[in-house]
């Protein structure tokens, strides 16, 4: 895996896990699914701001 991949790959894996968790679980898992989907976007925005 290239040097640039670990963070996006981890975020993509979390998103996918959240999606499936929302499908299997109910109630709070639906919120987990929604947040995990938006997590990579939020992380990129936060990292971008930190780096100016």
């Amino acid at each position: 895996m290239s040097r640039g991949w670990p963070i996006p790959a981890a975020l993509a894996a979390l998103s996918a896990a959240g999606l499936v968790a929302g499908l299997i679980g109910d109630g709070p898992w639906d919120l987990v699914a929604s947040l995990s989907l938006l997590l990579p976007l939020g992380a990129a925005w936060w990292a971008g701001r930190r780096r100016g």
Partner: peptide, 8 residues
Amino acid sequence: ARHGRFGA
């Protein structure tokens, strides 16, 4: 991504 940091 090798050339820049994540989010930059």
